[in-house]
């Protein structure tokens, strides 16, 4: 089985203040097993909607998504065991400690407490959380540290597909670099496939094997970073974006 993810003609509409908004207008793409696939687009382009569809949190209005040959909506429970996610917000019980949050995260995936205790400590150490902070409430952690705990939460359940939804947005440059290198290391170590959404061109180029550019709910270009630059005779991915869309990246933001 070479394909990890197949997305066929997925459409999603939302009603907002009486207006019908087309968040995704027939998106199709494929991710190969073991690949880090980047979805690059401005705010409101449909990246998070796609991630939420793959996370089983949304139903599509049209189309089909397969994860390791399982339909996300028909085989929801099988798919749920295969995936995990890191989102732009760390999304924890902030008053609880890293240990308490991760113990809950392991538990709801059916992992026994005895076994998970050691597993959690090892994972936290691996992402660089000092042992003396394990029992501190997460509200006392920096954004970068919270995001590292979020990454360890996602990998604790040994997912074969990792959905990274803007995991470095809002981090300072040092924390961003640390999280990026951690993602690369852990992904290789766990032999996972990754879908990374980002609006950071540098990050996409650094981490991704292949990239799609999404705009107004449509994929407008796809290829390896080198391939895309060559195709659009561009120096950077920002230039690729300008050529493919006709607008500068920073001017392309839409309302979510």
């Amino acid at each position: 089985m070479n394909s990890a993810v197949k997305v066929y003609n997925v459409k999603k509409y939302f009603k907002k203040t009486g207006k019908l908004i087309e968040a995704l207008k027939g998106v199709s793409f494929e991710i190969k097993r073991g690949e880090i696939y980047g979805l690059l687009g401005p705010n409101g382009s449909g990246k998070s909607t796609l991630i939420r569809l793959m996370s089983t949190l949304l139903y599509p209005d049209c189309g089909r998504i397969e994860i390791f040959s399982h339909d996300v909506f028909e085989d929801e429970n099988i798919v749920k065991r295969m995936i995990n996610r890191v989102s732009v917000e760390a999304s924890f019980f902030m008053k609880l400690s890293a240990i308490e949050n991760l113990r809950y995260a392991c538990g709801i995936y059916g992992l026994p407490f005895g076994k998970s205790k050691e597993h959690i400590s090892n994972m936290l150490e691996q992402v660089g959380i000092p042992k003396n902070r394990f029992n501190d409430p997460l509200e006392n952690f920096s954004r970068g540290m919270q995001q590292k705990v979020a990454i360890s939460r996602a990998f604790l359940t040994a997912p074969v597909l990792m959905l990274l939804d803007e995991p470095t947005t809002g981090l300072d440059p040092k924390a961003k670099r640390e999280v990026q290198s951690m993602v690369k290391d852990i992904v290789r170590e766990h032999d996972a496939t990754v879908l990374l959404t980002t609006h950071d061109m540098e990050e996409a180029e650094k981490l991704c094997d292949r990239i799609s550019i999404i705009h107004h709910g449509k994929i407008v270009a796809e290829g390896t970073p080198e391939n895309l630059k060559e195709r659009y005779s561009a120096q950077t991915l920002e230039d690729v974006f300008l050529e493919a869309i006709g607008v500068k990246f920073e001017e392309a933001d839409e309302d979510e």
Partner: peptide, 22 residues
């Protein structure tokens, strides 16, 4: 069944953890 048992227990423990912290 065991997996579901651990999951249910995780919900109970998380809620008591929250009571303790709040």
């Amino acid at each position: 069944i065991l997996k579901e048992f651990y999951a249910g227990l995780a919900v109970v423990i998380r809620n008591f953890d929250l009571v303790k912290r709040y």
